[in-house]
Design a protein around this nucleic acid. Structure first.
Length: 128
RNA sequence: GCAGUUGGACGGUCUGUCGCUUGCUCCACGCGGAGUAUGAGGAAAGUCCGGGCAACAGAGAGCAUCCCGCUUGUUAAUUUGCAAGCUGUCGGUGACGGCAGGGGAAACGCAGAAGAAAAUAACCGCCUCUCGCCAGGGAGGUAAGGGUGAGAAGGUGAGGUAAGAGCUCACCAGUCGGGUGGUGACACCACGAGCUGUGCGUCCCGGGAGUUGCAAGGUCAUGUAUACCGGUGUUUGAGGGUUGCUCGCCCGAGCCGGAGGGUAGACCGCUAUAGCCUGUCGGCAACGUCAGGCACAGAUAAAUGACAGACGCUACGAGCAUGACUCGUAGUACAGAACCCGGCUUACAGGCCAACUGCUUUC
RNA sequence: CGGGAUGUAGUACAGUUGGUAGUAUACUUGGUUUGGGACCAAGGGGUCGCACGUUCGAGUCGUGUCAUCCCGA
């Protein structure tokens, strides 16, 4: 592969801190949705770049296997298509916290999920 | 050959691209980068049991409370564990499987509806005596027949009787005592005795039970405030501990309520052990003894993946060169570690191995 | 991940020792009123989450299973 940016997904790109998560869900964060996924995001100066988390509610998928499957699908889709979005965020000068929430109660194909994630990233890029 | 029972072991393989976790090495030593190794299960699940481990508590006596319950073994594991058995009951032609199981014909309590009556039984019926012209009435005896019910005074037959009744006898079932066999639950008997309703509970016997759970608990860092209000008390003893209560004993200046403030990071615990494999010996077996070998996930908003292709397996259909051939279509399960083990239970496409059972065919 | 609780009429809840499942509200019908509400009278409505077991007989006792909720640095 000779593509210039590598499609990595390191620990530093994930949102792990409990404080930042509380700040994301309590405050005046905005959201966009592209069914079956909804994204909640808020700018923050405490992080550099983009930190994301993926959430699949237990209420919609009772089995851990299914939840893991959906989370992995979303993660792969983000990993492959994140570069343009990250550049847009970098131009704004702040970091960004993003939560991807799966709101459907049906499993979808990986291809479909990837298309929806790309659409979601475009929408968020415009909203900035 | 087909159908089945029990036990055991398995539950995909390979290639490519892009990624993730952890360990090690090297380069950078500011964040990181490169290489290499490594990475889910038989149930990781439900959390139904039992342990390990950890923190706290713990002088003692009596009385309650709760839990467990066929036997003998086995295990770290009183059990809803395991193995080999016992008894009863249900299912199956059978191999076999499911469920229940301390004692109690010692005593006491309770038993809706139905029924005359639920345990010192007389409604109908049967029999005797008696009153009466008759119809019928009264006194008494009787548990063989009737219907109710889960259960009706052990069951069947004969004798006996006014009619009947373990009233007597024979056989059968059960109980207690005795004998024989077995470690034992129990089994068996030309034995003896008495004469026996069903269910639940109280009761009796034996054994057991401190509490909380890795978000236990410990170290470091960051940060702050017991600032304030009310009640009560300091030898005239508040309050607390001692499992629930009582006694007894101990601690002894704070305690209770309200209303608040701060942290939300890192590390240890954290994976090596009732560990796995092979063999020997003991045992019907579960399991144990000894010897040798092996090292096998540690994440933390939570890694172990995503996509594409090929193969394998199963089912169905088609083809002709009728073979374990080719082509097409569909399917390829249940399910994801979170302190660690052992067991149980529940879910599960598909095939494999061993022993056994029934039916059919051939010799 | 660990610990705990609850499933009963459309809704919210009772139901101790196992023995004909009730209360409130909602619903239906009738009365009262010029009409409606309130009130009075009568009535209907239940797989007691599901399955199996113990028992003569389970809402209740036992086991399994499904769903919902709560607590825990």
């Amino acid at each position: 592969m000779t593509t210039s940016p590598r499609n990595t997904f390191k620990k530093s790109e994930r949102l792990c801190s409990r404080i930042l998560i509380d700040c994301l869900f309590q405050g005046d964060s905005r959201s966009v949705s592209a069914f079956p996924i909804r994204a909640v995001f808020t700018p923050s100066e405490e992080v550099s770049g983009v930190s994301i988390l993926i959430s699949v509610p237990k209420k919609r998928f009772h089995h851990a296997v299914d939840r893991n499957r959906v989370k992995r699908q979303i993660r792969e889709a983000y990993r492959k298509n994140k570069h343009q979005f990250i550049e847009q965020v970098a131009q704004s000068g702040k970091g960004l916290l993003v939560a991807f929430l799966y709101v459907s109660d049906k499993m979808e194909s990986t291809e479909y999920i990837e298309k929806r994630v790309v659409r979601l990233l475009d929408k968020m890029g415009e909203a900035l």
